[in-house]
Every structure is written in C-alpha cells, then in structure tokens.
C-alpha cells in the first residue's frame, strides 16, 4: 500500500466530493485501501424510479457502481491516472427499496499496463446483494494526468 488506510479514505472522500453528480447523490466513502472501497448513497425521494412500488431507480445503482469501481482504480494504481470506463455490465438481483441507504463495495481484479478490471456489489442489507457488476477501465497513462492530481486527491507532495 502507498499510504495508511486513513489516507486512502480521506483521498476517496476528497475525490468524490468534487464530482457534481456524486455530490447531489450525497455519496460518501466508508472504507478504502489499495484493493477495495465501500461507498454509500443515502435514500432521497428523487431517487425513486417506481413510485407505486416505492423502488429506487436502477440508474442510481449504475452510478454508484460506476463511481465505486472507477474510484478503486484510482486507489490501486501506483499514482493517479485518468481512467475512463470502457464498459459496465450490471446484473440486477433484487429491487432496491425506498427509505434505505445503498452501499457499494468495489474490488480490483487485475491491473494490466492498458486496462484495469474491477467488480462491484451493491446492497442495502449486508449479504443480500441488490446488484453485481463488472467494470473495465482504460488507463490513459500517468503522463496524461497532471502530477498535481495525485497530490490533490491523496494529499501527497508531487
């Protein structure tokens, strides 16, 4: 690991706090290290997709998965790199119900010079997954990302 766990967590908190869509979802980081992250989104009325059944829209789940998987990539690489999502494949296992927070745990599966493979799981109650996803990211290369970004996210000297 590059840093102590607390520094990863602070870094992730900083990272998602500058992403406007994550801010409006009130997303926050609960755990982070160089292998995994856990993010959460509290329930809000505007997240409802099916009003009659009081279910959270699956778009919120997609966003949480995309963000958590993308963020774990940031943690796992030797230094901050821009990594756009190549693809995101989601299985919706059970509905996400209103009035309960969503949690997402994302893990790095494999890092190659070009690609980072990740997977994520969303749940409202631990052990009862709402969705599972596989997301692959393309590495643009450290030279394509300003060194200052690494410093800005993780609070290290460039």
């Amino acid at each position: 690991m590059r840093f102590p766990k607390a520094q990863y967590l602070a870094g992730m908190q900083r990272f998602i706090s500058v992403l406007p869509h994550c801010q409006i979802l009130q997303m926050s980081a609960l755990e982070a290290d160089d292998q995994h992250v856990v993010f959460t989104v509290p329930f809000a009325e505007h997240l409802i997709g099916n009003a009659r059944k009081q279910l959270i829209h699956s778009g919120v789940i997609s966003t949480l998965l995309d963000t958590a998987c993308g963020s774990v990539v940031v943690c796992a690489l030797p230094r901050f790199e821009m990594c756009p999502t190549l693809d995101l494949r989601i299985d919706h296992l059970r509905p996400a119900v209103a009035n309960k927070a969503l949690y997402c745990e994302a893990r790095v599966i494999k890092i190659t010079p070009q690609i980072v493979f990740t997977e994520g799981e969303v749940y409202q109650d631990k052990g009862l997954p709402v969705a599972r996803a596989v997301a692959n990211f393309m590495r643009l290369g450290a030279d394509k990302t300003p060194v200052e970004m690494d410093a800005a996210v993780f609070g290290v000297e460039p």
Partner: peptide, 12 residues
Amino acid sequence: LHGGVIAGFMET
C-alpha cells in the same frame, strides 16, 4: 457527463 448518469438515462 457521469458515466452512471449515461447508464441511468439509457436504462430509463
């Protein structure tokens, strides 16, 4: 745009 929003849009 956030990739998750694009996914949410397409799904909707």
